Simulated scan of single mutants.
Amino acid sequence: MIVTNPWLAGPSPTKRLERNRLEERILNLLSSQNMCVLATAGPDGPLATPVRFFHLDFTLVFTAKRSSPKMRNILADPRVSVGIFAPLVGQASSRGAQLFGSASLLDPDDEDFHRYWPVVRWQSDHVERSASLDDPPLGTIGVIPADRIVYTEHWLRKDGYAPRQFWRRQPQVS
């Protein structure tokens, strides 16, 4: 029997990637994908919503109307989970991340809004709607700084690393 990826057979390795290599792989995933599933908790239970995202390092940014169910849920309980994944062809191509953090909603008059707004790529949407690029659609943005990330990439097994890696935000040094 021909085996395409023999390194997938047997038990998974347990070796951990060095932090800088893990961060590079996570940032590669965030830079190469633009859709995620945002999970919030609301009065009717969990809500998992497909959302287009942008990122600034390990912070996700998205746009939505403040009145949307996901935004109302975030206002009530900011704890969120986000699933991001690359297209799957087979187990060897399995690559994704679960991001956990506390979301905040920022309006244009909030102090931090202009720190995150530049990563939002609104221009293509404006062109598609025949709107002027001179008039950016400043509205509420959601911001999710990752507290921890569970990163999965089965290709790591080929080099003897565990396919599931764990990242945590390091405490700020004063």
Rank of each mutant, 00 (worst) to 15 (best):
V89W: 06
M71G: 04
S104K: 15
Q172P: 12
A97P: 03
S93I: 05
R19H: 07
H55W: 04
M35K: 10
I84F: 04
D134P: 02
A48D: 03
Q123M: 09
R72A: 08
R148V: 06
V51G: 00
K65C: 03
R148D: 11
R168Q: 13
P13E: 02
D110L: 05
L138A: 10
E24I: 03
P108Y: 04
R66S: 14
Y161V: 01
S31Q: 10
Q33M: 13
F100G: 09
L38E: 00
Q33I: 07
L30W: 01
F100K: 13
P43T: 15
P13T: 02
R168L: 14
R164I: 15
R25I: 07
N34S: 13
Y116S: 04
V37G: 05
N34P: 05
M1K: 09
V127M: 11
P43C: 13
L17V: 01
W155M: 12
D134T: 12
N73K: 02
D57Q: 15
W117G: 00
P50M: 03
M35R: 11
T140S: 07
D77K: 12
I141Q: 00
S130K: 14
R148H: 12
S132I: 01
Q165V: 04
G10A: 04
R79D: 07
P136L: 02
K65E: 12
A162T: 04
V3W: 08
V150P: 03
T59S: 14
L138N: 07
R148K: 15
S104I: 15
R52T: 15
M1N: 09
G96E: 03
V150T: 11
E128F: 15
L38N: 00
E111V: 11
T59M: 09
L106Y: 02
P6W: 01
L133G: 08
L106N: 00
H126V: 08
G45W: 02
D134Q: 13
F58T: 08
C36I: 06
S12I: 04
R169N: 07
N34Y: 12
S93W: 04
S12L: 08
K158S: 07
G83S: 13
Q123F: 05
N20D: 12
R168T: 12
K158C: 05
D109I: 08
S81Q: 05
S124N: 13
L99T: 08
L30M: 03
W117N: 01
P108I: 06
R66G: 07
C36V: 06
L38P: 01
R169G: 04
G83Q: 09
L8E: 01
A76M: 12
K70N: 03
D135K: 14
